[in-house]
Design a protein around this nucleic acid. Structure first.
Length: 732
DNA sequence: CATTTATGACGT
DNA sequence: GACGTCATA
């Protein structure tokens, strides 16, 4: 049935949910005494008190702002509680926030398609749930509406006392003469209220939300009333909202495009955009962007909520500002190794928990060339196929760095005259893993391929000689790595002896005992339980891969909830007893403070001796004299494993079933040694999939990411397009 | 060269 | 597929 009329039957109900000052909330849950106090989360406090990355609302009242230094915050708010971000391997460790975000996602995903937009934001498509509610128990049929729902803000709903009074809201929610869209929206409001209360009850986090007919408006709305409130945007108030909305407030227009709009076209508000024809906008900003601008000026956004609960990439990075910039290859290698350790650990968890494998490893760096005229220069990003195993990731990453460095310096190879100045300073490093695809649960055949008796442990022999080893040696830069061999590198650097000494001097803070080195196998394996699930679910589509379903992948917290302290259980039932618990009451009830007992252990930080950080291959590459190596070949656990609970072997079986995220890798590793049948992750090269038997490859095809949609934009939107996703998705 | 450290998306 | 750029919090 062709739809050319302004029809609301295609209306979607989209919510954007945003955790309030999330990192602060995570820290306050961990340390309940901080609740109610002006609090901020700060990372690294050495320099001017560290940088603020999250500021609680109490502190905002004193004028504390994100990205003040800790010291400045203390000036405006002397009583402020500054909590430090956990540190592991000498860098900020955001895993507790990531995990907390996962808790929330798994709750929010219960009522509809859920897209994890960032660590603390999700989009929900609640259309079906809203339609269902409207069909079964429409708001107008309710005698009573939840108190919390009555605190919602309805954009454009005039109110007597400036704020929407509850009576007015209730009337709006329950109007029986409302049009279909508004009724659906009312259902959305109730559903989101419910979800937010659920989040609060199960995680102790508050969030704010926007409910509208598309993502753009939902996102706008979620930020309008914070914290712990929600706002909905009825169709009828869209124009009023956008007309006076500063252009920079729109997602995507906060940067250069927004500035250009302002400067070149004199556009200050979204409403100003209406003056320009689609052609004009396309002419200036290109076809896709032009159409996109034309649409958003009218509140049109067809972007769909993607069913995705998991991140598409993992990265670990660190900056080295000012005088801390890295000047030697050894210090770079040290930090790369730290970053790779973290990355590897996270890849490991992702594989175990989500059955996904990353295929691409990328190195980013930023650098200054100090040799001549202190010019800043782009350090090229480099990527290569990703091989699992900490040591391999470290090795490949270092190779990528060297390739990048060579390109960065130009083929002249700025020789370090004297042995002091490298000619370059690295101010940031990051390593990331992308192209993450589900590993096929599909068949046992793939299991056998990896795990089969004849093939086990000899993956590389199945392949062309250089298949595995050569790939990482050919970063995608214009020059292949092979031309950058160790000899050549040496020529660009001080002699090896000197170089080593300088490296050590440069890493002065580190202890240079160098008695061990990290030649360890990757620090995780598939546990029996997990691999059982993984490899069993034959052709029935693997449940854990279905991102539409909530996943049980997390986590210490999730597991601890049911068995949590009595207090917490009492708290919950107390709340229930009170009937509809309002969010404010939740906190007023007062006994929150005794919750959350045992959260993450802090990560004891230990700097590894340099020797620990050089992988075998790396040492070869820099031609470290053999004698220096010999005494450094000890066995060692990666730092992350050292942080983990040491579990006696006898208790391994038990540990494996109760292990939390934090200790899983550690116990598994030990387990790996004691049980031989298990899969060695190290031996799984993602590239190997290409080498699989044809029938398996075919299965794999089904799981590969869908090919990119063409960036075509259909012209001539009708009003109907306002709500429904366009077939050809708008560019971003 | 002191907004860090993640993320995601698009263009070429 | 690789890489650069932009955007957001």
């Amino acid at each position: 049935m062709p739809v050319a009329r302004p029809d609301s039957s295609g209306a979607r109900i989209i919510a954007h949910v945003d955790l309030d000052c999330f990192y602060v909330q995570v820290e306050q849950r961990k340390q309940p005494k901080l609740r109610g106090l002006p609090t901020a989360v700060v990372q690294y406090n050495e320099w001017k008190g560290g940088g603020l990355i999250a500021v609680g609302y109490e502190a905002r009242n004193y004028g504390v702002k994100r990205s003040m230094r800790g010291d400045e915050a203390k000036e405006v708010c002397p009583q402020i509680e500054l909590v430090q971000v956990p540190v592991a391997r000498g860098k900020a460790d955001l895993s507790s926030y990531r995990n907390a975000g996962s808790e929330v996602v798994s709750i929010l995903a219960r009522k509809g398609r859920c897209e994890r937009a960032s660590i603390d934001e999700v989009y929900l498509d609640l259309t079906d749930a809203a339609e269902a509610m409207l069909a079964q128990t429409p708001p107008e049929s309710l005698d009573e509406v939840d108190e919390e729902a009555l605190k919602s803000h309805i954009l454009g709903l005039e109110s007597k006392d400036g704020n929407d009074s509850k009576a007015t809201v209730k009337e709006w929610l329950c109007r029986c003469d409302a049009d279909h869209r508004d009724k659906l929206l009312a259902c959305g409001v109730l559903i989101v209220t419910e979800l937010r209360m659920q989040v609060l009850k199960e995680t102790e986090f508050t969030c704010s939300a926007g409910i509208a007919h598309n993502k753009m408006l939902a996102k706008l709305a979620s930020g309008m009333n914070k914290p712990a409130q929600q706002t909905t945007v009825p169709f009828s108030s869209v124009k009023g909202l956008l007309d006076s909305l500063p252009i920079k407030k729109m997602k995507q227009l906060g940067g250069k495009l927004g500035t250009s709009l302002q400067n070149e076209l004199g556009v200050t508000t979204v409403g100003d955009l209406l003056k320009f024809s689609e052609d004009k906008l396309q002419e200036r900003y290109g076809f896709n962007t032009g159409t996109w601008l034309w649409n958003i000026a009218r509140g049109i956004s067809g972007e769909e909520v993607q069913a995705r609960l998991l991140p598409k990439s993992h990265g670990s990075g660190k900056s080295f500002p000012g005088p801390r910039a890295l000047k030697t290859v050894a210090s770079v290698q040290h930090w790369l190794n730290q970053l790779c350790e973290e990355l590897s650990e996270r890849l490991c968890s992702d594989l175990e928990q989500n059955k996904r494998i990353a295929h691409t490893l990328t190195l980013h760096a930023s650098a200054f060339k100090s040799s001549d005229s202190d010019s800043r220069k782009k350090f090229p990003s480099k990527s290569c196929p990703l091989r699992y195993g900490t040591a391999k990731i470290q090795e490949d990453t270092f190779n990528l760095f060297q390739a990048g460095l060579r390109e960065f310096l130009g083929s002249f190879g700025v020789k370090t005259q004297g042995s002091h100045y490298s000619g370059w300073r690295i101010t940031a490093l990051s390593v990331s893993a992308s192209k993450i695809v589900p590993v096929l649960s599909g068949t046992c055949s793939i299991t056998k391929y990896f795990n089969g008796p004849d093939k086990f442990g000899s993956t590389s022999e199945q392949l062309p000689d250089n298949f595995i080893d050569a790939a990482p040696l050919s970063p995608s830069g214009s020059e292949s790595y092979s031309t950058l061999n160790s000899t050549e590198l040496q020529n660009e650097l001080p002699g090896e002896q000197v170089w080593i000494e300088h490296s050590m001097a440069d890493l002065g803070q580190l202890e240079m005992k160098a008695n061990t080195w990290n030649r360890l196998d990757p620090s995780c394996s598939i546990s029996k339980q997990t691999s059982g699930q993984w490899f069993h679910s034959g052709t029935e589509s693997s449940s854990s891969l279905d991102q539409n379903k909530p996943q049980n992948r997390d986590d210490s917290r999730m597991r601890s909830v049911p068995i949590k302290s009595n207090q917490q259980e009492h708290k919950k039932s107390a709340l229930k007893d009170k009937g509809a618990s309002s969010i404010l009451n939740f906190f007023k009830s007062g006994d929150l403070s005794c919750s959350s007992g045992n959260h993450d252990t802090e990560h004891a930080e230990t700097l590894l001796p340099l020797g620990d950080c050089l992988s075998e291959s790396n040492k070869k590459q820099v031609n470290i004299p053999k004698e220096r190596l010999d005494n450094s070949t000890g066995d060692c656990l990666s730092e992350s494993n050292q942080n983990q609970v040491n579990i006696p072997k006898e208790r391994l079986a038990e540990a494996a079933t109760t292990s939390t995220t934090t200790d899983r890798c550690g116990s598994d590793q030990i387990q790996q040694r004691s049980e031989s049948w298990k899969l060695r992750i190290e031996e799984i090269d993602p590239s190997v999939i290409d080498e699989l038997p044809k029938e398996i490859q075919d299965e794999i095809q089904a799981w590969l990411r869908p090919s990119k949609q063409p960036h075509r934009v259909k012209r001539g939107f009708t009003i109907a397009d306002y709500f429904s996703p366009s077939k050809n998705r708008l560019e971003q």
